[in-house]
Amino acid sequence: MILNIRVDHKTADISKMEKSSQKLDVLFNTIIERYPVNEHLNIKTCNRAELYLVLEECDIENLITNDFVIESDDNAMTHLLRLSSGLESMIIGEDQIFGQIKDAKKRSIKEGCSGPVLQTIFTKAVHVGQVVRKKTKINEGSLSIGSAAVELAESVHGDLRCKKVLIIGAGKMGTLVAKALVEKKLKAIVVANRTHDKAVVLAKELGGSAIHFDKLDEALMDADVVISATGAPHPILTYEKLKDVVPDCNISKMVMVDIANPRDIEEDVSKLGVKLFNIDDLRGIANRSRKMRETEACDAEKIVADEMVLLKRSLKHLEVEPIISDIRITAENIRLNETQKAFKMLGDMNGNEKIVDDLTKVVVERLFFNVIKNLKEAAENDEKNILEAAETIFSKKS
């Protein structure tokens, strides 16, 4: 069974998402205690937290909760392919989720928690993401979370070229904000990050300046726009901090956009007169983007449907891979042994050994070609009797 458990922007606002993301970790530990989990992988971004599991069995009814969407097998895999294509994103067609899926796959392999099933599924997801972006224009001129954050700031201030913009966080989200600001040709940009070197690199790209995190208070004093996107586990900008740091004459003019999850900026900050936005406020921009890409989305859906057929076929082939592996290993061992015997009997072959070796490889390959092909087709068609017979005939006996 393939299981997907998730919470995302479709089912939760940022407040619920913060809480549910933590609950997902608890649920994962519960599942591990109750059921044998063969493989697992998680994806966490600013507006989603997802868990993918491969189990022998699982009573989904016992897991159902209002906090999460839970889907299995075909539905779970279709969701992942749509996710990789940008169809499940808040801002349809955005490319960031594609990279996040690739990173999640690499991380899971490195940590040894994904096996042949998840690797097959996620390899297909990466492939589908590439095909959709190549064959459609779903991501052409698409917004990112970062550029949407800048658009929100512009909705209040208008042209930002005469404004001082402070970016807090130089990670992936901060970089997306930076790219959006570069397009605006802004000059007064300050980057703050706990790792100063990262801030320096990002500021250099922007033509702005970098500050150490302990100088954040000074940068806040006269900032017009603050866009925060750190990975901090708790708020870094609180009501008390801003009240003490930012002069009253500036604070009512300040725009803050918080695109972190969990949030970087306390909600109470808005009581000071700050115009505070978070991920939930991006939905209006996202809806406009979605309408612009409806045709491309339809084309992407067709690609996902076609690729799902191929993915299911690949997973069926995995079921007979142990039998096929036994066939190949046994055949190769026999081929090598008999070829070596032939070499000894033939004596000096004047360098023609490769001809004989290649000949025996071709003979074995052609001899078992139809056998392997038929086994794969039997798996695709769920012909259990054929698979059981093949296992009896070909599997190695202990």
Rank of each mutant, 00 (worst) to 15 (best):
A210Q: 10
R6V: 02
K23G: 00
V37P: 13
L186I: 15
S84Q: 07
K187D: 14
L83S: 04
V177I: 14
K316N: 15
K354A: 13
N193P: 10
E296A: 09
G207D: 06
V356M: 07
F277A: 13
R194S: 03
N250T: 08
S142Q: 07
R335N: 03
S21P: 15
L63K: 03
I92D: 00
A260N: 10
L346K: 03
V320D: 15
K134P: 05
V364T: 11
E296P: 02
T123D: 13
N62S: 15
E296F: 02
D95L: 14
N38H: 13
I91L: 14
M90L: 15
M90A: 10
L242I: 09
N381C: 10
T392H: 10
L51F: 04
K10T: 08
S85V: 01
H79I: 08
I14V: 15
T392R: 08
L27N: 07
N193L: 07
R161Q: 13
P247G: 06
V362E: 13
E380A: 04
V7M: 06
I31F: 02
E267D: 09
D299R: 12
K23A: 02
E294T: 09
E388R: 08
G231W: 08
T136R: 09
A219W: 01
V26C: 07
T30S: 02
V191D: 12
S108Q: 07
K163M: 01
K396Q: 06
E380Q: 05
P235F: 00
L216W: 12
L387T: 01
S21W: 14
